[in-house]
Design a protein around this nucleic acid. Structure first.
Lengths: 272, 272
DNA sequence: GGGCGTTAGTGAGGTAGCGAACAGAACCTA
DNA sequence: TAGGTTCTGTTCGCTACCTCACTAACGCCC
């Protein structure tokens, strides 16, 4: 387990040029976030921007049925509050902690001051905005897919953003994220477990065989996934073009689609 | 019917300061687009950016089942190709013409040159990007709603972006956009017609009573709709702040949620 | 180590939407 | 006016998911 924390565990921060990083560092505040914690409430002015390192945040909407539906997921590859960039101080979504862990946060007012038009920071954030849009489009496309397929995508995405291949997750929570009943999640999870794709025990789920799950998610997802990956890797490009010092260690840490045989367990930036 | 065409029928263009508008004008090319025409293919470099005036464009994904699913809709309030702004020259979505009509297009290379960081044009486009993200989130939230409700949202959105309250639309096309069977659309449409919410004849649909349909779409939609509206109206704000000459006629033309009794038929910029 | 709250598994009955297949109605063209 | 094409309406069996209701296991805490 990582005991040491650094803002560089977040890919956007780690892609910043040194001088920028140094400027921001004193304003970055480490936060320990627990499941279900509300980060942003709908239509309330954003006061902090969060850079997840080990936690996963979810943009969600509450339906009148009382169910929730997650529309996108933000891990260490991203940041919350991109709407600030787009000229809007709040969003109608609720952002909550989906997976516990750490994030660095910074006052929105400070970040805004540091956001020079055309600068590296802005460019990185815009890139992530595009990635977020694609991810949201994935959610929209998933429409009316069988629950088990949705569960696969959800778990793959969670896995992509988790330090290990095992993470705290109850069926209830997954149901909320997918906007389906808990029992349906249980049924789907049982099937996946029987197939050897996942394992779980009370409150924890483990991805065992990514390949099996990737077969279940739509082709469109895979395409989008690659695109997403490409987009975020591109950051380095934007960087050098701007003569900033890149941190090569930081790129491509999103677990890649298992292209070959040893597909099963994804490795991660900070080791499994 | 409007016989005269002007780029100012597009809200983004009409919100540009005069000098910018004058600069762009010679590069704007009027296009007559017919239903089903493909504007962007997935992962092909974008060569033109389209500003719809009377047509409606749709961002869609093809599912392996052969069905399509629309994730967002762009009318005269917006523009295609916002990804250029976000540092990406292509997108994995297919953009097609959902409703026939006109759009002005401009070479992507020219637009990029005109896009000064921090400028009005960039600001307007970023605003629209945020609106597009919200709209896509709506699609994602719609997940597992009954088809009739989805149909309502679709028709309301189409109505929002159409000059009149009647538009060319087959059940088949709607089915493709929603990712459901044509027969299911027919069934839902019959119900709505019986309720007096819509009327239709072979290939044409007419919105008769918006209020009835708004009651069917989720509260979340209404909230998002207002937000969307607010966002796009905000453009004027960004403008004045930047001392550009605004064109007041151009704002708030998205049909507002019928707040009062005479809800039924929305009026529109260019008259019904 | 026994109790209790939380999490997971099961089952019966209902329903919305699907797949497939076909009938009829509107429009087009010649 | 005839004949073809494109749209819309309808039917039937099937499946996935839902609602509701309940039981069973885990594991934390006193």
């Amino acid at each position: 387990m990582s005991i040491l924390h650094s803002p560089k565990q977040n890919q956007i921060i780690s892609a910043l040029p040194v001088h920028k990083y140094t400027r921001l560092l004193p304003f970055l505040e480490l936060r320990d976030l627990s499941v279900g914690e509300v980060i942003y409430e709908p239509n309330i002015t954003i006061s902090y921007v969060y850079f997840p390192t080990t936690c996963i945040l979810a943009r969600t909407y509450q339906l009148e049925s009382g169910l929730w539906r997650q529309v996108s997921m933000i891990g260490n590859e991203g940041v919350t509050g991109t709407s600030l960039l787009l000229g809007c101080d709040s969003t109608p979504a609720t952002v909550i902690v989906q997976s516990p862990g750490y994030a660095y946060r910074i006052k929105a007012s400070i970040l805004k001051k540091e956001l020079k038009p055309g600068g590296t920071l802005q460019r990185l954030l815009l890139h992530f905005t595009q990635a977020l849009l694609l991810q949201t489009e994935q959610s929209a496309v998933e429409h009316r897919q069988p629950i088990i397929n949705q569960l696969c995508r959800f778990l793959l995405m969670t896995d992509d953003r988790s330090p290990g291949s095992s993470f705290p997750l109850t069926h209830e929570l997954v149901g909320n994220m997918l906007g389906v009943r808990r029992e349906s999640v249980t049924t789907a999870a049982l099937t996946l477990q029987a197939e050897g794709a996942i394992a779980y025990r009370r409150g924890h789920m483990t991805v065992i065989n990514r390949k099996l799950m990737e077969d279940r998610v739509s082709e469109a997802y895979i395409g989008l996934k690659n695109e997403y990956h490409r987009l975020l890797s591109n950051k380095s490009e934007a960087e050098t073009e701007n003569q900033c010092e890149a941190n090569p260690m930081s790129f491509g840490s999103i677990k890649t689609r298992s292209p070959s045989t040893e597909a099963a367990n994804g490795r991660n930036l900070w080791g499994a």
